[in-house]
Design a binder for these strands. Sequence first.
RNA 1: AGCUCUGUGGUGUAACGGGUAACACACGUGACUUUGACUCACGUAUUUCAGGUUCAAAUCCUGACGGAGCUGCCA
Length: 552
Amino acid sequence: MTDPVSRPTNFIRHIIDKDLTDGVHDHVATRFPPEPNGYLHIGHAKSICLNFGIAEDYEGTCNLRFDDTNPEKEDIDFVNSIKQDVQWLGFQWQGKELYSSDYFDQLHGYAVELIEKGLAFVDFSSQDEIREMRGTLTAPGVNSPYRDTAVTENLMHFEKMKNGEYAEGECCLRAKIEMTSAFMCMRDPVIYRIKFAHHHQTLDKWCIYPMYDFTHCISDAIEGITHSLCTLEFQDNRRLYDWVIENISIECIPRQYEFSRLNLEYTVLSKRRLIQLVDDNHVSGWDDPRMPTIAGIRRRGYSPASIREFCQRIGVTKMDNMVEMSMLEACIRDELNANAKRRMAVLEPVKLVIENFSNDEWLDAPNHPVNEEMGTRKVPFTKEIFIEADDFREQANKKYKRLVLGKEVRLRNAYVIKAERVEKDENGNVVCIYCSYDADTLGKDPADGRKVKGVIHWVSASHALNAEVRLYNTLFTVPNPAAEEDFAGTINPQSLVVVNAKVEPSLLEFEPLQGIQFERQGYFCRDVDTTDDKLIFNRTVELRDSFAKFGS
RNA sequence: AGCUCUGUGGUGUAACGGGUAACACACGUGACUUUGACUCACGUAUUUCAGGUUCAAAUCCUGACGGAGCUGCCA
């Protein structure tokens, strides 16, 4: 065992440390067990980082196991996307990916064992009858009339279930536990049901499928999982998990520990709501950059390392939580601030003419403000340029540090200019700003000691490339949309704002998803749909801004 | 109402029963700055409440109050 110091500790690691020092285990084996019925999201990332992170730090193993016991809801496309997302996050599971369905034969055998022990029975009650007999949270349940069927008869019925001799819903296999238990899941839970469904792994071999509670614990035991980590809503199920393990002939005793699931402000993470967002076309798809899915976050421009860092920062407890979006944003900003090349892009252009400038030149501009190893690029400087409309005011108070009529400002990576006059359209909007420039200010302050406070970005009008820039904001207008009666009603109409921008020519050299900083704006990346003919940039996250937000 | 779990700055977490409750994010103030970025400095908590045990309590005990989960042939 290595010293698990690379990640912050948590209560689960304390348990593992104790198990290791007490000799309960001499190794650690975890697993990430998604059901292949949807796309992974940031909440899954928390579980992935927890399970794989523990395996890494304790030099143990972590399996990827698809919990595929409900063929009606599952699909091979989901298993493929899940595998891809786990690997993209930077993790590799132990050996080949596993499936609960790999154990269907063994599971069936253990079910037979329970029947033989008089601990399971085939129930022919209807679903409604079973529900009524289950009782409520405060009222105990009552025994099914089939509860005392003879073992031989149960064996026969279960065999017929397996052979397809009963219709779906006609009967099911139940564990015989305790109908008066305070834990609802212990009131003779169904452990096998009939489904004449095609399974993506076992095809048409089975028409009976084991339930989660019966499957998961046995799968863990078969794989030798030492610590089975899941979310809080399975706390009650732990009693059933332990009951099954204790009542079948299996050596390994895995233990289940529950942690709280992630809640992120201004988004939703429940599968049901995510599906609704896609189905109702509130977003363009599962990989829409506004989605909290791994695919969406990836397309938004987040790196695997930034998500791993996020999962590390939020920690793991059993407390209910609501993590601020700023926590996630800080993670990608930290990484991109260090690694992303700087570029200039004008999102809402207004023309500016430098009247006393004539000969075009190509200026050297550093790719990073402090890391010189990142080199420089050439930027065309011409008589006509574009600047951000929001970076000019005819008049402003001293707090405004940008270009003001009659005042000076520094053009980033270039000269100091002074606004002399403006040209307006019939509506009074500024359509062109006429300036003069100080030729002796390239790479240095004015020789006479004048102080020029502001710096604005710009791009040559004749060399600029047109680009579609997608400005993403929070998908919802409220911190906890899931708490709303109609969460879709709180979707942010400004969650995507598309602008036609002017960008510097060197932006052509970037690969899709590669992080870039548009100076003074934020971090962006070329969208996966971008081409050299049609440049599309996604805003990953804005820069921190201690001044008032831009108008965009 | 029954059972289970859970209450530490604005948010997320940390703290062998022992030092002025630590860290990150956020926020505020100031410095620096050819990004209103970055960086740096400083600031923000009677650990839900009330008792109790102890030389010593966020930590242990009791009670109260708050929050979450559980009544699929879903996972």
